[in-house]
Amino acid sequence: MGNVLAAAPAVPPPFPMTGMPVVPGTVPATPGPGTGKDPADHNPGSFDELHRKCKEVFPVQMEGVRLLINKGLSNHFQVSHTVNLSTMGVSNYHFGATYVGVKQISPTECFPVCISDIDNSGSMNGQVIHQVTDGVRAKAAFQTQKSRFVTWQVDTEYRAPSYTAAIALGNPDVLLGSAVLVTHYLQALSPTLALGGELVYHRRPGEEGAMSTIVARYAVNNWVATMNIGASGVHASYHHKASDQIQVGVELEANARLQETLCTLGYQVDLPRTNMVFRGSVDSNWTVSSVLEKKLPPLPLTLALAAAINHRKHKFQCGFGLTIG
C-alpha cells in the first residue's frame, strides 16, 4: 500500500554456474521476525513484506502459452527470454537481465542488484538496490510505457535491531509542484508482535491530501496474522503452515472507496518425492483457480498447468507454461 511501484523481490544470491539460477521475482521472501529471546533477534522486516507469505500460497493466473528461458552467463549475471501467446489478450515478448554484485551480507543476499525487463513495445521496468551500510538499504525504480517515462521512485530503508523505518519519494516534479511521499515504520514489541503505520502524502496542481494506515502482525512458529486498517479500507491475511507439505492462506480486502470486499482462501501442497507443487484458491466472487508445477530433473525444465473459472461470469481460462533453466 502506498508504493508508486510494486515492491521489489527479495535480493537473490550470486547465480550458480550449474543448476537452476534464481529467477527475478520468484526468489523466496526474506525471513520474517526471529523467534529468539534476544531483543536484537526480532527485526520486524520490511513493511512491503507483511502479507507476502500469504500471497505466495495463492496461484498465479496464466492464460495461453508461456515459454521462459533463463540463462546464467556468469556467477553474477543472468538473462531471461519470455514469450507469451494468448488468445484473449495481446501476445508479447519480454527480455530480462539481472546483475548481482559481490558484496555479500548473508548467504541469500548480495549487493548491488540491478533488475530490468523490457517488452516488444518498448515498455520497461528497472530497479537498482544497494546495501549502503549494515542497516541502510537504498532502491531506485522506474517504469516506462512505449519509450515514455511513466513513473519513478527512490526510497531508503533503515533496519535497526527492533524496528524498520523507510521513506519513499515517487514522481517528484519541481516545476509542477507534484510528488508522492510515503513513510513506513514497523516496531517489534516482542519476538511475536509487531505494530507500525504508513503515511502517504500526495500533491499535484489543485489537489493535496494524506492518508494513514496502522498495521499489526502476530507471528509464531507455524502461523502469522496481519492486519492493515486505514481510511482506504482493511487488508487482513492469515498464513498457516500445517506441515512441511501443506500451507493455507486466507486474505480479506475491503475497499471503502469502491465499497467492495474480496475474501480469498488459498492452499499449497508440496510433493517433494514427485517434484510437484500444487496451488489452489477460491474467492468470494466464485472464482476458482489452480496451478500445478512439475520439475523434470535432471533436466532444467519446469512444466506448469493453470486453470481458472468464474462461476458468476461464466468465464474459463487455462494456460500452459514451460521454464527452461
Rank of each mutant, 00 (worst) to 15 (best):
S74Q: 09
S74W: 10
N75P: 02
N75V: 03
F77H: 07
Q78H: 06
V79M: 06
V79N: 04
V79H: 02
V79K: 01
V79C: 02
V79A: 01
V83P: 00
V83C: 03
V83G: 00
V83E: 01
N84Y: 05
L85C: 03
S86F: 02
S86D: 08
S86N: 07
V90M: 05
S91H: 06
S91G: 15
Y93S: 08
Y93L: 05
H94K: 07
H94M: 10
G96N: 05
T98H: 13
V100I: 10
G101S: 05
V102F: 11
V102W: 08
V102N: 11
K103P: 06
Q104G: 02
Q104C: 06
Q104S: 11
I105G: 03
S106H: 04
P107K: 01
P107I: 09
P107W: 04
P107T: 07
T108V: 10
E109S: 10
E109D: 08
C110A: 14
C110W: 02
F111P: 00
P112S: 07
P112N: 05
V113Q: 10
V113S: 07
I115T: 13
S116H: 09
D117I: 11
I118P: 05
D119W: 07
D119I: 11
N120D: 13
S121C: 04
G122V: 08
N125T: 15
G126T: 13
G126E: 09
V128N: 03
V128A: 06
I129N: 12
I129G: 13
I129W: 06
I129H: 08
H130Y: 09
Q131F: 02
Q131T: 02
Q131D: 13
T133Q: 08
D134I: 01
D134N: 12
G135K: 14
V136R: 11
V136N: 14
R137S: 14
A138W: 13
A138M: 13
A138G: 13
A138T: 12
K139F: 07
A140C: 12
A141Y: 04
A141F: 04
F142N: 13
T144G: 13
Q145H: 15
K146N: 15
S147E: 15
R148W: 06
R148C: 12
R148Y: 13
F149A: 15
F149Y: 14
V150T: 13
T151N: 14
T151D: 10
T151W: 05
V154E: 12
V154F: 14
V154K: 06
V154W: 09
T156P: 00
E157A: 14
E157G: 09
Y158K: 04
Y158V: 10
P161H: 04
T164W: 12
T164D: 04
A165M: 08
A165G: 11
A166S: 15
A168E: 11
A168W: 12
L169N: 06
L169Q: 03
G170L: 04
G170A: 14
N171V: 00
N171P: 01
N171H: 01
P172W: 14
D173N: 06
V174H: 01
L175V: 14
L175H: 12
G177P: 02
G177R: 00
S178F: 00
V180Y: 05
V180E: 03
V182M: 06
V182N: 09
T183V: 15
T183K: 02
H184D: 14
H184C: 02
Y185A: 03
Y185M: 07
Y185E: 03
L186F: 11
Q187Y: 11
A188G: 10
A188H: 00
A188S: 14
L189N: 04
S190R: 05
P191V: 02
L193F: 04
